[in-house]
Amino acid sequence: MKALSQKRRHPLAAVVLLAIALILTGGLYAVATASNQAQAASSTTYTASDIEEGQKLFVSNCATCHGLNAEGTVDGPSLVGVGAAAVDFQVGTGRMPMQMQGTQAQVKPRQFNDEQTHQLAAYVASLGAGPTVPEDEHLDVTKGDAANGAKVFLANCAMCHNAAGAGGALTRGKWAPTLMGVSEKHIYEAMETGPQNMPVFNDANITPEEKRDVITYLKAQEVNESPGGFKLGSLGPVSEGLLIWTLGLGIVIAFTIWLTSRSA
């Protein structure tokens, strides 16, 4: 201790102190942010042959826009570090490969089967750490809490996806799609990776358990019978107004004509 206190006025003491501080804050930051990232490739294991096959598929189907090494071109972003979850979502819902360039990738019948999707995911995951395909435990709606899910959903998702998950419009031709009929895995991956115009809801923002709650709420919405009768698309007052002006007024007019036809 004596040596340390003697050296504290050494010309390099400030530099050493600064270095220690930087390492400390940087290290803490790294630890803190690591918890925001889904753990890399722990649940799903990819073999070397998966990666190799995935690369072949990638080069023949994706490289036109994303570049031969997935480094990105003017037509498509870099896929280094997007993770297996992004691939599983985009390819698994048929959005990728895109049918055409546009404001947003459209859902269409998927082009690759589960095995090919797995291989593509393996290849992209090998390029850099990123969110992984969620484990089944986080998708099990029997373990979720629908009431908490409703709270999280209404606070974070309903502004774009509508209170009933029916979807909504964004600016300049973009949109938030309906969440009815979307699989548990894809809902989870969408929150994790933020596809298209969606923001990323990482695990620090919405924990894996809360994500499961949201999925539980949405799945409950799907199977719940509507207590009030036909839902009219759960679109709110517009479809109600449309119904009263068409069916409602139509029935009224039919009766008025019937009632006055027998007078003369």
């Binding site: 409703a150 502004m159 509507s226 709110g236 517009v238």
Partner: peptide
């Protein structure tokens, strides 16, 4: 026909605005 499914919207809180608010 369902009209005004109030249970979908949740309790009022000044922070959120939901898509399809008409």
């Amino acid at each position: 026909f369902t009209i005004n499914a109030i249970w979908n919207y949740g309790p009022y809180d000044p922070s959120p605005v939901q898509a399809g608010t008409q």
